[in-house]
Design a protein around this nucleic acid. Structure first.
Length: 624
RNA sequence: GCCCCGAUAGCUCAGCUGGAUAGAGCAGCGGACUUCUAAUCCGCAGGUCGAAGGUUCGAAUCCUUCUCGGGGUGCCA
């Protein structure tokens, strides 16, 4: 909790209490060093302990050789909580020396009033940072599969949180659009075209099939060699294997030749490559859009865009003796990392570490990144450790102002199937992401229809789509990203408990309430300025949770951990549900001022829920 | 071999950066619908926080060692 040194009124009661407690501590222990003056204010775990607690007495008492409860008593004597909290007494001290604080209803109301603005209490930073976020990372000629789900969904959420905090975010999708595998597909398309095939109608699924075939051809070489080693001289097998190797060699030679042609700008090769690029990206960006992520064509930064930068970059590293030859390859060795970073193969080819170094250089130097966040699978841990260290050694992480950019790998775990193995289709192949989303929508649609038998198809369809995306995304975002998780339609779409649909339901209920209010002739606009009613514990609990929103957004951003925001929104939605049950708003017998106060609280909670969902990239609905 | 990550209720997960009696959801049992939308709410039951030491007034949280599981580890990305 930061100390608010300026004497401004603040939205956050916790910050105000922090100031008051710190002031009291300075009076009671005048010679305490500044860095030890900490109020340790936090929300109470249980309502019976009040709204907030200060844990300052224990550590300071230890320091000055007092009993914690005695020190707490002195702090209570010295503190001024007027205008913010109920007067403190002996009774406020509990356990080893906790000081429990209950806010004055009017203080709670005015804090809510201050939060009730467009910004919802989140103030723009004095010095906005430029944050580059590496997301998605699809490969040409391949359909998006579940492996791309997390990088896309989590990466976009991380980006959105930083945008919400007021930073300048630049998404970058490191598209795998270069290298021999792509050249092989280009080669294959050339052969097909020569045979008279019309390539103008080719689909991504077909490209994907071609990719698999040519990929298998390429692998035949190594596979065959492995088998020879095992089997030894078996005449028949040898002949067969020799044929396979010959085939593979031929395929490989053609691919290599095609890559050279492509790299040297051969017109036909480039045209076919562009065809593959367009087909792939059109489909993948459509899926990104369907997932309600803000990832578009302008964010694509394919490996091919670095191709002219790799040679000079490697030469620079050689000239400055940062890269050295080792067993024919060119490597960068970094302190504390055993494995060297290989940036050029023995045959002269570059590797993904080379491209990633060029990417860091561009992202920090050209894009001005103060921070570069890589939302990539945890198995790339060593790779990024190496690349970050190598970039630092070369000074590629130094931005225009001469400071080192922060490079972070926000890694995430694997999605498992019910069998606790990485999620695959029944045939053992990568599960197509569009198919997965289609199934989620179909299941959501069945549930929506069940709950709303009279809803016309035209209305049900978009709702089902939003519910399905919310379910899939929330399931992915709501657990700690480093952990693996088991994918389960049943759980994420169960519509009970900690799920996306639960959040959407809470929102739909408030929306419905507002529609009902308008139907009844209630002046909803007038209620926007009503006094908050804080009589009921359920209202109070909801209000306190609403007030925590800015702090949660900040913590979510600081750690790049969207699950923190999910957890908060679930608690908020849950407290709203309790409030909804216990505090009638529009029902008969509710007086006008209570009604308007509750209406205003509902609307504020709604806006926080919607803002939170939007910050995570979770779509919401008007009704469900 | 070395390195990284994980282990919390029967299951799936939180635990606010060291604070009070470790919390949710699912599954189980029992309640609340002529509804401001029951896709909800209330109650009951369920845990030596992988193990052992250590630091601390105070440890699921920090340190050390170990066990189990996953991943990575020089020319694929």
């Amino acid at each position: 909790m930061s100390t608010n040194t300026q004497n401004q009124p603040t939205l956050d009661p916790a910050a105000t209490l922090d100031d008051r407690f710190c002031a009291a501590i300075r009076v009671v222990v005048p010679d305490l060093p500044d860095d030890q003056v900490k109020a340790h204010i936090g929300p109470s775990r249980q309502p019976k302990f009040g709204d907030f607690q200060s844990n300052c007495a224990m550590p300071i008492a230890k320091r000055v050789g007092m009993k914690p409860r005695d020190l707490a008593a002195k702090i209570i004597e010295a503190i001024d909580v007027s205008g913010i909290a109920q007067p403190l007494s002996e009774e406020s001290i509990a356990g080893p020396g906790f000081i429990n604080v209950s806010l004055l209803p009017e203080a709670l109301g005015s804090a809510l009033g201050a939060l009730d603005s467009d910004e919802l209490g989140i103030t723009p930073p004095a010095h906005p940072k430029t944050i580059v976020v590496d997301v998605c990372g699809v490969n040409l000629a391949k359909q998006m599969h579940v492996g791309h789900l997390r990088s896309t969904v989590i990466g976009d959420a991380i980006a959105r949180v930083q945008e919400r905090l007021g930073h300048c975010v630049k998404r970058q999708s490191h598209v795998g659009d270069w290298g021999r595998p792509i050249a092989m597909v280009v080669e294959e398309l050339a052969v097909m075209e020569d045979a008279g095939t019309d390539l103008s109608t080719i689909s991504l699924a077909e490209l994907n099939a071609i990719y698999k075939v040519v990929g298998a051809k390429c692998k035949a070489e190594t596979k065959a060699l492995e088998i020879i080693m095992k089997v030894g001289g078996h005449a028949k097998a040898e002949i067969e294997l020799e044929e396979r190797i010959a085939d593979a060699d031929a395929a490989m030679d053609k691919a290599k030749a095609r890559l050279v042609a492509l790299q040297s700008g051969d017109e036909r090769s480039v045209r076919l490559w562009q065809l593959i690029y367009d087909i792939t990206m059109t489909a993948c960006l459509a899926t990104c859009q369907r997932l309600n992520t803000n990832i578009t064509d302008e964010h694509s930064a394919g490996e091919s865009t670095y191709r002219d930068e790799l040679g000079p970059l490697v030469q620079d590293l050689i000239d400055r003796k940062i890269a050295v030859e080792d067993d024919g390859a060119l490597v960068v060795r970094c302190e504390g990392i055993k494995e060297p970073t290989i940036i050029r193969k023995r045959d002269g080819g570059f590797l993904y570490a080379t491209t990633d170094l060029a990417a860091i250089k561009r992202r920090v130097g050209k894009l001005g990144g103060d921070e570069v966040v890589y939302c990539v699978d945890s198995r790339q841990g060593l790779h990024f450790k190496q690349v970050f260290a190598a970039a630092h050694k070369a000074g590629y992480d130094k931005n225009a102002s001469g400071t080192d950019a922060v490079l972070v790998h926000t890694m995430f775990g694997t999605i498992f199937g019910e069998d606790n193995k990485p999620l695959k289709s029944r045939s053992g192949e990568n599960l197509n992401l569009s198919d997965l989303l289609d199934e989620a929508v179909a299941r959501a649609s069945a549930s929506v229809a069940e709950k709303n038998p009279d809803m016309p198809e035209s209305e049900r369809q978009p709702i089902s789509e939003a519910v399905a995306m919310a379910a899939v995304k929330y399931a992915d975002l709501s657990t700690e990203r480093i952990k693996d998780y088991v994918f389960s339609f049943d759980r994420m779409l169960a519509f009970e408990g900690d799920t996306g649909p639960y959040m959407l339901y809470a929102i739909a209920r408030v929306k419905n309430m507002l529609r009902k209010a308008a139907d009844k002739g209630v002046d909803v606009d007038a209620a926007k300025n009503a006094e908050f009613s804080m009589a009921d514990p359920a209202e109070r609990a909801l209000a306190l949770m609403v007030l925590r929103y800015p702090t949660i957004i900040q913590a979510t951003g600081d750690n790049h951990e969207p699950h923190r925001l999910c957890g908060y929104l679930y608690e908020l939605a849950s407290l709203f549900a309790k409030f909804y049950e216990q505090c009638p708003v529009l029902k008969d017998g509710v007086d006008e001022s209570t009604r308007d106060g509750r209406l205003r609280l509902s609307m504020l909670a709604l806006r926080v829920l919607q803002d939170g969902c939007n910050t995570l990239g979770i779509p919401t609905v008007e009704r469900m």
